[in-house]
Amino acid sequence: MKDEILMENKSIVVPGEVLAKGMSFLPGPGTYRRDDVIVAKKVGLATVDGKVIKLIALNGTYLPRVKDKIIARVIDVLMTGWRVDINCPYSAVLTMKDATNEFIPRGADLTKYYDLGDHMLCQVVNVTSQNLVDVSMKGPGLRKLKGGRFIKVSPYKVPRVIGKDGSMVSMIKKATGCDIIVGQNGVIWINGDPKAEVVAVKAIKKIDKEAHLSGLTDRIAKWLEEAK
């Protein structure tokens, strides 16, 4: 029997679609092997990388991974820290120890440090098999986010919003003069002049919608030029 690839490179595939036939290919992320064929597990872009068949998922919810920098929102104050919403099915815990270098006396009112509804840029430090998540505020650039506005995009589009070496986000920053922080969990903080903020939000929504199409950077550059 001949080994062959049964899809076009970089084409969109659906779950259950047979991507390649034969034992000489290996199933990469987003695919699995059934008997002698490799099958897609998700909706996504299928690519061939040597002998490995990979699938880049195009949609889905965020699953936390260690070292991800994410934007979180305080939803509850606990005995020893804060429970934060991280735009995923699971909430995370920020402990006192990970929150600040300051000394917090016993019995102190924790809302003085982070109150309900506060947003912060934090980092995932631990994820268990049951998806219990710990986050930390210790690291360069991690801080509380005051003012501005928060929008959500699909976590799978975050790399496109950031662009190669941050080219896309710095282009929007330059064009609008806004401060923008993109969390790996798909939450984006935009802070600047209210009118410029609206332009930045529209630009990001456009990226979210057209992320899978090529020539994105040029199109967004043109759009920003017109929006000015």
Binding site: V14, P15, G16, Y32, R34, V39, K41, K42, V43, A57, L58, N59, G60, T61, Y156
Partner: peptide, 11 residues
Amino acid sequence: LADAGLEMTDL
């Protein structure tokens, strides 16, 4: 379900 990005073995 596929549009929601869930892992499925088949449709």
